[in-house]
């Protein structure tokens, strides 16, 4: 009924009072639908789906993060256990070098800035957004408060996610262009597509939160409950405390994130950990 009354209002001019009423009604609708859905216990295929979604949201998160951590350690240990390089592989700069040159190479990408400035902008926006996304996810934990706890937004209110997503389109499309197309292997495409979909679902959650009164999927405070449950190894089914009509979007986002975590050590993403040591080789 509330939804019908909301729709019936659309043709009329909105004043402040009607806008307030509309927001309140919308919130009631979301809450009502969410509660109604929780009350209904899954049946039939719903039971299987519920179990799959539970696995994705709780056990697989632990497994994928553990897999990632051990994978990265394994990769680094296996490289550092290899024989040391018996000679210098330095490249000499005609400009004055400092002990921070390798840091500069790694984080500021001066070679890219000089030779491909547009690509550099894309890379910088992507990587800075990536770091902010990590911070934004940590901020959801109740024990970490970068933004105030009652803020309904993640860091950047969705802008960070968009900043992460748009360069991914650039990275994807440039792979269809010669000569990058010829050096691209299936793993490169799959990885970009995975990260792109992960980002798009994340955008729906974070940016979408600013579209309606109660958030597009669910509120940041609800996510905090889920993150807190993960942090405290509470194995309760999240369906019972973060249910919303868009619960499945969250599940897909987490599933893609789990896949991403598991791929980190064994894909090109590992350059996040190798970039500094390899850049040091060029400078020492």
């Amino acid at each position: 009924m509330a939804l019908l009354s909301m729709l019936s209002m659309i043709p009329f001019a909105l004043n402040a009072a009607t806008a307030e009423t509309l927001a309140a009604d919308a919130a009631q609708v979301v809450d009502a639908v969410a509660e109604a859905s929780v009350v209904a216990e899954p049946t039939g295929f719903g039971i299987v789906l519920d179990k799959i979604e539970y696995f994705i949201l709780i056990p697989w998160v632990y497994l994928s993060i553990a897999f990632m951590i051990f994978g990265i350690i394994y990769r680094l240990v296996s490289i550092y256990r290899a024989p040391k390089t018996p000679f210098s592989l330095k490249i000499y700069s005609s400009k004055k070098e400092s002990p921070l040159s390798a840091w500069n190479d790694t984080f500021m990408l001066p070679q890219v800035r000089r030779n491909k400035p547009f690509f550099w902008i894309s890379l910088m926006i992507f990587h800075i957004s990536g770091v902010l996304l990590i911070l934004g996810h940590l901020d959801i934990l109740p024990t970490i408060s970068i933004l105030s706890e009652d803020s309904k937004h993640m860091i950047g209110a969705g802008l960070v996610g968009v900043g992460f997503t748009l360069p991914l389109f650039h990275f994807l499309f440039r792979r269809f262009k010669t000569p990058i197309r010829e050096i691209t292997v299936p793993a490169d495409f799959l990885l970009i597509v995975l990260v792109l979909f992960l980002a798009l679902f994340g955008d729906m959650i974070s940016w979408g939160n600013s579209w309606t009164a109660n958030g597009f999927i669910t509120t940041k405070q609800k996510f905090a409950e889920y993150f807190q449950a993960l942090a405290t190894f509470n194995f309760e089914n999240p369906r019972y405390y973060i249910w919303s009509p868009h619960y499945h979007f969250l599940v897909i986002h987490v599933a893609l994130a789990n896949l991403f975590f598991m791929l980190v050590p064994f894909s090109k993403i590992v350059h996040a950990f190798f970039a500094m040591p390899i850049n040091k080789l060029r400078r020492k």
Binding site: K84, Q111, I180, I183, F274
Partner: peptide
């Protein structure tokens, strides 16, 4: 030939294509 540096060189390329030119 798989010393430390070589392992880094073989395992890090992201196929960005910046070396092409």
């Amino acid at each position: 030939k798989l010393h430390q540096a070589m392992r880094f060189y073989l395992e890090t390329c992201t196929h960005c294509g910046l070396c092409v030119d």
